[in-house]
Design a protein around this nucleic acid. Structure first.
Length: 361
DNA sequence: AAAGCGTGGCG
DNA sequence: TCGCCAAGCTT
Protein backbone atom coordinates (compact mmCIF):
# COMPACT_ATOMS: atom_id res chain seq x y z
CA UNK A 1 0.00 0.00 0.00
CA UNK A 2 1.46 3.35 -1.06
CA UNK A 3 1.79 6.04 1.53
CA UNK A 4 -0.73 8.86 1.37
CA UNK A 5 0.59 12.15 0.00
CA UNK A 6 -0.56 14.32 2.91
CA UNK A 7 0.99 17.57 1.67
CA UNK A 8 -1.07 17.16 -1.49
CA UNK A 9 -4.18 16.57 0.62
CA UNK A 10 -3.49 19.79 2.52
CA UNK A 11 -2.99 21.82 -0.66
CA UNK A 12 -6.22 20.57 -2.20
CA UNK A 13 -8.14 21.15 1.00
CA UNK A 14 -6.99 24.71 1.50
CA UNK A 15 -7.46 25.36 -2.19
CA UNK A 16 -11.10 24.39 -1.80
CA UNK A 17 -11.61 26.50 1.32
CA UNK A 18 -13.53 29.77 1.28
CA UNK A 19 -14.52 31.31 4.62
CA UNK A 20 -17.85 32.56 3.30
CA UNK A 21 -19.08 29.15 2.28
CA UNK A 22 -20.18 28.55 5.82
CA UNK A 23 -20.63 31.83 7.66
CA UNK A 24 -20.62 31.74 11.44
CA UNK A 25 -20.56 34.74 13.76
CA UNK A 26 -17.40 33.59 15.50
CA UNK A 27 -15.48 32.65 12.36
CA UNK A 28 -12.35 34.73 12.05
CA UNK A 29 -12.84 36.11 15.54
CA UNK A 30 -9.51 35.98 17.40
CA UNK A 31 -10.90 36.92 20.78
CA UNK A 32 -10.03 33.95 23.02
CA UNK A 33 -13.15 34.32 25.13
CA UNK A 34 -15.55 34.19 22.20
CA UNK A 35 -13.57 31.44 20.48
CA UNK A 36 -13.64 29.37 23.66
CA UNK A 37 -17.34 30.04 24.21
CA UNK A 38 -18.23 29.03 20.66
CA UNK A 39 -16.15 25.85 20.87
CA UNK A 40 -17.74 24.73 24.13
CA UNK A 41 -21.21 25.36 22.74
CA UNK A 42 -20.40 23.43 19.58
CA UNK A 43 -19.17 20.30 21.34
CA UNK A 44 -21.42 17.52 20.01
CA UNK A 45 -23.82 20.21 18.86
CA UNK A 46 -24.87 21.45 15.43
CA UNK A 47 -24.13 25.00 14.45
CA UNK A 48 -27.81 25.78 13.90
CA UNK A 49 -28.67 24.58 17.37
CA UNK A 50 -25.81 26.34 19.15
CA UNK A 51 -25.96 29.66 17.35
CA UNK A 52 -28.77 31.32 19.34
CA UNK A 53 -27.06 30.24 22.54
CA UNK A 54 -23.81 31.85 21.46
CA UNK A 55 -25.59 35.12 20.74
CA UNK A 56 -27.38 34.94 24.07
CA UNK A 57 -24.20 34.30 26.05
CA UNK A 58 -22.22 37.02 24.33
CA UNK A 59 -25.02 39.50 24.96
CA UNK A 60 -25.41 38.50 28.61
CA UNK A 61 -21.69 38.10 29.29
CA UNK A 62 -19.53 40.18 26.94
CA UNK A 63 -16.30 39.21 28.69
CA UNK A 64 -14.96 36.28 30.67
CA UNK A 65 -15.06 38.46 33.78
CA UNK A 66 -18.78 39.03 33.30
CA UNK A 67 -19.33 35.31 32.99
CA UNK A 68 -17.15 34.50 35.98
CA UNK A 69 -19.22 36.86 38.11
CA UNK A 70 -22.55 35.33 37.12
CA UNK A 71 -24.57 33.15 39.52
CA UNK A 72 -24.54 29.43 38.74
CA UNK A 73 -28.31 29.21 38.35
CA UNK A 74 -28.37 32.07 35.88
CA UNK A 75 -25.78 30.39 33.66
CA UNK A 76 -27.66 27.11 33.82
CA UNK A 77 -30.82 28.95 32.80
CA UNK A 78 -29.06 30.41 29.77
CA UNK A 79 -27.91 26.91 28.86
CA UNK A 80 -31.40 25.42 29.25
CA UNK A 81 -32.37 23.23 26.31
CA UNK A 82 -28.88 22.83 24.86
CA UNK A 83 -28.07 19.57 26.63
CA UNK A 84 -24.85 18.13 28.07
CA UNK A 85 -25.18 20.41 31.03
CA UNK A 86 -21.74 19.59 32.40
CA UNK A 87 -20.57 21.98 29.71
CA UNK A 88 -22.35 24.83 31.44
CA UNK A 89 -21.01 23.86 34.84
CA UNK A 90 -17.48 23.61 33.49
CA UNK A 91 -17.91 26.82 31.51
CA UNK A 92 -18.40 28.70 34.74
CA UNK A 93 -15.57 26.88 36.50
CA UNK A 94 -13.23 27.68 33.65
CA UNK A 95 -14.26 31.33 33.50
CA UNK A 96 -13.58 31.68 37.22
CA UNK A 97 -10.26 29.94 36.86
CA UNK A 98 -9.22 32.30 34.07
CA UNK A 99 -10.16 35.30 36.17
CA UNK A 100 -8.71 34.09 39.45
CA UNK A 101 -5.65 32.13 38.40
CA UNK A 102 -4.75 33.59 35.02
CA UNK A 103 -5.45 37.24 35.69
CA UNK A 104 -8.40 37.30 33.32
CA UNK A 105 -6.42 36.11 30.30
CA UNK A 106 -6.82 32.74 28.62
CA UNK A 107 -3.73 30.55 28.45
CA UNK A 108 -2.13 31.05 25.03
CA UNK A 109 -0.83 27.50 24.56
CA UNK A 110 -2.38 24.12 23.85
CA UNK A 111 -1.10 22.71 27.15
CA UNK A 112 -2.23 25.73 29.12
CA UNK A 113 -5.71 25.60 27.63
CA UNK A 114 -5.99 21.93 28.57
CA UNK A 115 -5.93 22.93 32.23
CA UNK A 116 -9.36 24.53 31.90
CA UNK A 117 -12.35 22.41 32.92
CA UNK A 118 -14.33 21.31 29.88
CA UNK A 119 -11.44 21.93 27.52
CA UNK A 120 -10.10 18.69 26.08
CA UNK A 121 -7.74 17.94 23.18
CA UNK A 122 -10.09 19.14 20.46
CA UNK A 123 -11.12 22.40 22.13
CA UNK A 124 -7.57 23.24 23.22
CA UNK A 125 -6.34 22.80 19.65
CA UNK A 126 -9.19 24.88 18.26
CA UNK A 127 -8.62 27.80 20.63
CA UNK A 128 -4.83 27.59 20.32
CA UNK A 129 -5.01 27.79 16.53
CA UNK A 130 -7.90 30.23 16.05
CA UNK A 131 -7.08 32.67 18.83
CA UNK A 132 -3.34 32.28 19.25
CA UNK A 133 -2.06 31.08 15.87
CA UNK A 134 -0.50 27.98 17.36
CA UNK A 135 0.44 25.28 14.90
CA UNK A 136 -1.79 22.48 16.17
CA UNK A 137 -4.37 20.41 14.28
CA UNK A 138 -7.86 19.69 15.57
CA UNK A 139 -9.13 16.13 15.69
CA UNK A 140 -12.92 16.04 15.70
CA UNK A 141 -15.63 13.93 14.12
CA UNK A 142 -15.15 15.59 10.76
CA UNK A 143 -11.42 14.93 10.75
CA UNK A 144 -11.83 11.26 11.66
CA UNK A 145 -14.30 10.79 8.85
CA UNK A 146 -12.38 12.67 6.18
CA UNK A 147 -9.03 11.07 6.92
CA UNK A 148 -10.44 7.57 7.32
CA UNK A 149 -12.09 7.86 3.93
CA UNK A 150 -9.30 9.64 2.11
CA UNK A 151 -6.73 7.10 3.31
CA UNK A 152 -9.17 4.17 3.17
CA UNK A 153 -8.16 3.54 6.75
CA UNK A 154 -10.28 1.02 8.73
CA UNK A 155 -8.68 1.78 12.10
CA UNK A 156 -11.52 2.16 14.63
CA UNK A 157 -11.82 5.77 15.73
CA UNK A 158 -13.33 5.19 19.16
CA UNK A 159 -10.36 3.66 20.93
CA UNK A 160 -7.30 5.20 22.52
CA UNK A 161 -4.85 3.83 19.95
CA UNK A 162 -7.22 4.81 17.14
CA UNK A 163 -7.35 8.41 18.27
CA UNK A 164 -3.56 8.50 18.54
CA UNK A 165 -3.26 7.07 15.05
CA UNK A 166 -5.56 9.65 13.47
CA UNK A 167 -3.90 12.43 15.41
CA UNK A 168 -0.63 11.49 13.74
CA UNK A 169 -2.35 11.47 10.35
CA UNK A 170 -3.86 14.91 10.81
CA UNK A 171 -0.54 16.22 12.10
CA UNK A 172 1.06 15.03 8.88
CA UNK A 173 -1.74 16.57 6.84
CA UNK A 174 -1.38 19.90 8.62
CA UNK A 175 2.32 20.19 7.90
CA UNK A 176 3.22 23.84 7.44
CA UNK A 177 -0.22 25.01 6.40
CA UNK A 178 -1.34 27.78 8.78
CA UNK A 179 -3.32 25.87 11.40
CA UNK A 180 -6.23 28.28 11.75
CA UNK A 181 -6.96 28.01 8.05
CA UNK A 182 -6.38 24.26 7.88
CA UNK A 183 -8.59 23.56 10.89
CA UNK A 184 -11.41 25.72 9.67
CA UNK A 185 -11.12 24.26 6.19
CA UNK A 186 -11.22 20.63 7.24
CA UNK A 187 -14.25 21.11 9.47
CA UNK A 188 -16.14 23.06 6.83
CA UNK A 189 -15.22 20.36 4.34
CA UNK A 190 -16.63 17.69 6.63
CA UNK A 191 -19.85 19.65 7.07
CA UNK A 192 -20.36 20.51 3.42
CA UNK A 193 -18.68 17.86 1.25
CA UNK A 194 -17.46 14.78 3.10
CA UNK A 195 -20.62 14.45 5.16
CA UNK A 196 -21.62 11.34 7.12
CA UNK A 197 -24.72 10.35 5.18
CA UNK A 198 -24.76 11.89 1.73
CA UNK A 199 -21.18 12.81 0.83
CA UNK A 200 -20.76 14.91 -2.30
CA UNK A 201 -18.25 12.61 -3.96
CA UNK A 202 -19.11 13.54 -7.57
CA UNK A 203 -18.12 17.14 -6.93
CA UNK A 204 -15.44 16.46 -4.33
CA UNK A 205 -12.10 18.16 -5.05
CA UNK A 206 -10.30 15.29 -3.30
CA UNK A 207 -12.12 12.52 -5.14
CA UNK A 208 -9.26 11.61 -7.46
CA UNK A 209 -7.09 10.57 -4.51
CA UNK A 210 -9.79 9.27 -2.18
CA UNK A 211 -9.13 5.59 -1.46
CA UNK A 212 -12.54 4.95 0.05
CA UNK A 213 -14.17 6.22 -3.13
CA UNK A 214 -11.85 4.19 -5.33
CA UNK A 215 -12.74 1.06 -3.38
CA UNK A 216 -16.41 2.00 -3.05
CA UNK A 217 -16.10 1.95 0.71
CA UNK A 218 -17.13 5.51 1.50
CA UNK A 219 -20.16 4.39 3.47
CA UNK A 220 -18.16 1.91 5.54
CA UNK A 221 -15.79 4.52 6.89
CA UNK A 222 -14.96 5.62 9.47
CA UNK A 223 -15.13 2.41 11.50
CA UNK A 224 -16.44 2.63 15.03
CA UNK A 225 -17.78 0.16 17.58
CA UNK A 226 -21.49 -0.41 17.70
CA UNK A 227 -23.47 1.65 20.15
CA UNK A 228 -24.79 -0.16 23.20
CA UNK A 229 -28.50 -0.40 23.66
CA UNK A 230 -30.47 2.32 25.39
CA UNK A 231 -31.45 2.14 29.03
CA UNK A 232 -35.22 2.18 29.59
CA UNK A 233 -36.49 4.33 32.44
CA UNK A 234 -39.88 5.47 33.67
CA UNK A 235 -40.30 8.80 35.42
CA UNK A 236 -43.36 9.78 37.39
CA UNK A 237 -43.34 13.45 38.23
CA UNK A 238 -45.55 14.66 41.05
CA UNK A 239 -46.97 18.06 40.20
CA UNK A 240 -48.04 19.19 43.65
CA UNK A 241 -49.90 22.45 44.08
CA UNK A 242 -51.17 24.11 47.23
CA UNK A 243 -54.41 26.04 47.54
CA UNK A 244 -52.70 29.14 46.13
CA UNK A 245 -51.57 27.22 43.07
CA UNK A 246 -47.92 27.18 44.06
CA UNK A 247 -45.63 24.36 42.92
CA UNK A 248 -43.02 22.23 44.61
CA UNK A 249 -39.68 21.84 42.85
CA UNK A 250 -36.12 20.89 43.72
CA UNK A 251 -32.71 20.77 42.13
CA UNK A 252 -31.27 17.50 40.82
CA UNK A 253 -27.98 16.80 42.54
CA UNK A 254 -27.21 13.15 41.86
CA UNK A 255 -24.73 11.83 39.31
CA UNK A 256 -27.27 11.37 36.57
CA UNK A 257 -28.76 13.31 33.73
CA UNK A 258 -29.79 16.93 34.30
CA UNK A 259 -27.56 17.62 37.29
CA UNK A 260 -28.25 21.10 38.67
CA UNK A 261 -31.47 21.45 36.73
CA UNK A 262 -34.79 21.78 38.53
CA UNK A 263 -37.72 19.39 38.44
CA UNK A 264 -40.89 18.36 40.25
CA UNK A 265 -40.62 15.64 42.90
CA UNK A 266 -39.75 12.47 40.99
CA UNK A 267 -40.55 8.82 41.44
CA UNK A 268 -38.70 6.41 39.22
CA UNK A 269 -40.59 3.15 38.75
CA UNK A 270 -40.25 -0.12 36.83
CA UNK A 271 -43.23 0.77 34.65
CA UNK A 272 -45.10 3.71 33.21
CA UNK A 273 -48.54 2.33 33.88
CA UNK A 274 -49.19 3.31 37.48
CA UNK A 275 -52.41 4.62 38.98
CA UNK A 276 -52.16 7.08 41.88
CA UNK A 277 -52.80 4.31 44.41
CA UNK A 278 -49.99 2.18 42.98
CA UNK A 279 -47.72 5.20 42.94
CA UNK A 280 -48.21 5.69 46.67
CA UNK A 281 -47.33 2.05 47.31
CA UNK A 282 -43.86 2.46 45.87
CA UNK A 283 -40.94 2.18 48.27
CA UNK A 284 -39.72 5.40 46.78
CA UNK A 285 -42.80 7.33 47.85
CA UNK A 286 -41.39 10.13 50.05
CA UNK A 287 -42.03 9.99 53.82
CA UNK A 288 -42.71 13.70 53.95
CA UNK A 289 -45.63 13.39 51.56
CA UNK A 290 -48.79 12.19 53.39
CA UNK A 291 -50.91 10.38 50.82
CA UNK A 292 -54.06 11.08 52.81
CA UNK A 293 -53.67 14.83 52.33
CA UNK A 294 -53.48 14.63 48.53
CA UNK A 295 -56.30 15.14 46.13
CA UNK A 296 -55.63 13.57 42.74
CA UNK A 297 -56.42 15.87 39.84
CA UNK A 298 -55.37 13.82 36.85
CA UNK A 299 -52.29 12.95 34.88
CA UNK A 300 -50.67 13.89 31.61
CA UNK A 301 -50.47 11.74 28.55
CA UNK A 302 -47.14 9.90 28.43
CA UNK A 303 -44.11 11.68 27.04
CA UNK A 304 -41.34 9.71 25.37
CA UNK A 305 -38.06 11.47 25.98
CA UNK A 306 -35.23 10.13 23.84
CA UNK A 307 -31.62 10.60 24.84
CA UNK A 308 -28.57 9.11 23.21
CA UNK A 309 -28.25 6.34 25.80
CA UNK A 310 -31.66 6.33 27.42
CA UNK A 311 -35.34 6.26 26.52
CA UNK A 312 -37.44 7.71 29.28
CA UNK A 313 -41.19 7.39 29.54
CA UNK A 314 -42.52 10.31 31.55
CA UNK A 315 -45.91 10.95 33.15
CA UNK A 316 -46.92 13.99 35.17
CA UNK A 317 -49.38 13.30 37.98
CA UNK A 318 -51.23 16.34 39.29
CA UNK A 319 -52.19 16.49 42.97
CA UNK A 320 -53.67 19.23 45.11
CA UNK A 321 -51.91 19.33 48.46
CA UNK A 322 -53.87 21.90 50.43
CA UNK A 323 -52.02 21.48 53.67
CA UNK A 324 -48.57 21.82 52.11
CA UNK A 325 -46.72 23.12 55.12
CA UNK A 326 -43.21 22.35 56.32
CA UNK A 327 -41.11 21.33 53.32
CA UNK A 328 -38.21 18.93 53.24
CA UNK A 329 -34.78 20.49 52.91
CA UNK A 330 -33.85 21.72 49.45
CA UNK A 331 -37.42 21.78 48.20
CA UNK A 332 -38.85 25.09 46.98
CA UNK A 333 -42.44 26.27 46.89
CA UNK A 334 -42.82 28.67 44.01
CA UNK A 335 -45.47 30.48 41.98
CA UNK A 336 -46.36 29.31 38.50
CA UNK A 337 -44.65 32.27 36.83
CA UNK A 338 -41.49 31.70 38.85
CA UNK A 339 -40.97 28.36 37.13
CA UNK A 340 -39.64 30.20 34.11
CA UNK A 341 -36.72 31.43 36.17
CA UNK A 342 -35.32 27.98 36.78
CA UNK A 343 -33.37 25.84 34.34
CA UNK A 344 -35.58 22.89 33.49
CA UNK A 345 -35.06 19.71 31.45
CA UNK A 346 -36.65 19.81 28.04
CA UNK A 347 -39.31 17.24 28.92
CA UNK A 348 -40.57 19.50 31.68
CA UNK A 349 -40.72 22.63 29.56
CA UNK A 350 -42.59 20.59 26.96
CA UNK A 351 -45.08 19.48 29.59
CA UNK A 352 -45.53 23.05 30.76
CA UNK A 353 -46.15 24.27 27.23
CA UNK A 354 -48.66 21.55 26.57
CA UNK A 355 -50.50 21.92 29.87
CA UNK A 356 -50.78 25.64 29.31
CA UNK A 357 -52.54 24.97 26.01
CA UNK A 358 -54.93 22.52 27.63
CA UNK A 359 -55.39 24.85 30.60
CA UNK A 360 -54.44 22.11 33.04
CA UNK A 361 -52.13 24.43 34.92
C1' DA B 1 -10.86 2.37 29.06
C1' DA B 2 -15.51 2.29 28.69
C1' DA B 3 -19.48 4.42 30.02
C1' DG B 4 -22.24 8.34 30.74
C1' DC B 5 -23.84 12.77 29.54
C1' DG B 6 -28.99 16.08 25.95
C1' DT B 7 -31.21 17.61 22.31
C1' DG B 8 -32.72 17.92 17.65
C1' DG B 9 -32.40 16.85 12.75
C1' DC B 10 -32.15 13.74 9.07
C1' DG B 11 -32.46 9.68 5.79
C1' DT C 1 -40.18 4.66 13.43
C1' DC C 2 -35.47 4.24 14.33
C1' DG C 3 -30.61 4.68 14.54
C1' DC C 4 -27.10 7.72 13.72
C1' DC C 5 -24.66 11.61 14.78
C1' DA C 6 -23.29 16.75 15.67
C1' DA C 7 -16.68 21.67 16.24
C1' DG C 8 -16.10 16.00 22.96
C1' DC C 9 -15.13 15.79 27.88
C1' DT C 10 -14.94 13.60 32.35
C1' DT C 11 -14.53 9.88 35.42
Amino acid sequence: MDKVDWPLFGRKLTGWYRPDRRPMPWKGDRNPYRVWLSEIILQQTRVAQGLPYFERFVAAYPTVADLAAAPDAEVMKHWEGLGYYSRARNLLKAARKVVEQYDGRFPATYEGLLTLPGVGPYTAAAIASFAFDRQVAVLDGNVFRILARYAGDPTPIDTGPGKKHFQSLVDAALGDTPAATFNQAIMDFGALVCTPKAPQCPSCPLADRCRALAQDRVYELPVKGKSGKRRERFFHYLVLTDEAGRFLIHRREERDIWRQLYQFPLLEAPTLDLRPAALMELDEWPDWLPAAELHYEGRSTPFLHQLTHQRIGVIFHRFRWSTMGQLPAHYLRIERWELERYALPRVITRYLEESRLTLDL
